[in-house]
C-alpha cells in the first residue's frame, strides 16, 4: 500500500525522529519520490524539529553569582526590617488587646446582669377561650402553641393546665 499525503503529514514527527517502522519507510519513500509537496514538507519539518530538540546554546551571564548574592543580602535586610516592625507592633498590640478584652468583658457582664424581668415572655390571654393562665410563658412557646399536634405530650400537658384553671 502506498502512503497518501495525509498519512505523511500524520507521520512527520516520527519521520523527523527516525522512529518510523521499516515497512512504513518503504511506503513513505515511494510516496516522496512521486510527491514533491510532501518531499519539501518533510525536509522543512525535519530541519525545524531537529532544532527544537537541540535548544539554544546559551549560558547564564558571568554576573549570575554576584547578582544572586546581592539579592540574598537585600532579602536579609528586608527580613530584619520586617522583624523590627513586627516586634514593635507586637509591643503596642499586646496591652491594647488586653485593655480591649477587659472592657468587652465588663460590658458583656453588665448586659447579662441587666435583662428586664418580663422580657421575652407573654401571657396567654384570650387566645384560648376561658383560659386565664397566670404563669408567664415564653414567646416562642406562645407563637407555636396552636401548632402542637393533638394528642402529643405537649398538648396533653398544656390542656391539663388549662383544665385545672377552669
Amino acid at each position: 500500500m502506498v502512503m497518501d499525503c495525509i498519512a505523511v503529514e500524520k507521520s512527520l514527527v516520527a519521520i523527523a525522529e527516525n522512529s518510523i517502522p521499516e515497512r512504513r519507510l518503504k511506503e513513505l519513500r515511494l510516496h516522496l519520490e512521486s510527491c514533491s509537496n510532501c518531499s519539501l514538507l518533510v525536509k522543512r519539518f525535519t530541519k525545524i524539529w531537529q532544532k527544537i530538540g537541540r535548544g539554544e546554546q546559551i549560558e547564564p551571564s558571568s554576573s549570575f553569582w554576584i547578582e544572586l548574592q546581592q539579592k540574598m543580602s537585600a532579602r536579609e535586610e528586608r527580613k530584619f526590617w520586617l522583624a523590627d516592625v513586627f516586634i514593635g507592633a507586637r509591643r503596642l498590640f499586646r496591652p491594647a488587646a488586653l485593655v480591649f478584652t477587659l472592657i468587652a468583658g465588663i460590658f458583656a457582664g453588665y448586659q447579662i446582669g441587666n435583662v428586664p424581668q418580663d422580657s421575652g415572655t407573654a401571657r396567654i390571654e384570650g387566645k384560648i377561650s376561658g383560659a386565664n393562665l397566670e404563669e408567664p410563658i415564653s414567646a416562642p412557646y406562645f407563637e407555636s402553641f396552636e401548632d402542637y399536634p393533638k394528642g402529643s405530650v405537649t398538648d396533653f400537658y398544656l390542656s391539663s393546665k388549662i383544665d385545672k384553671k377552669e
Partner: peptide
C-alpha cells in the same frame, strides 16, 4: 505535545 506541535508546524509551513 508532539501531535500539537506537528499540527502547528505543518500549518505554519504551509503558509510559506
Amino acid at each position: 505535545a508532539k501531535i500539537n506541535l506537528q499540527k502547528a508546524l505543518i500549518s505554519c509551513l504551509k503558509k510559506i
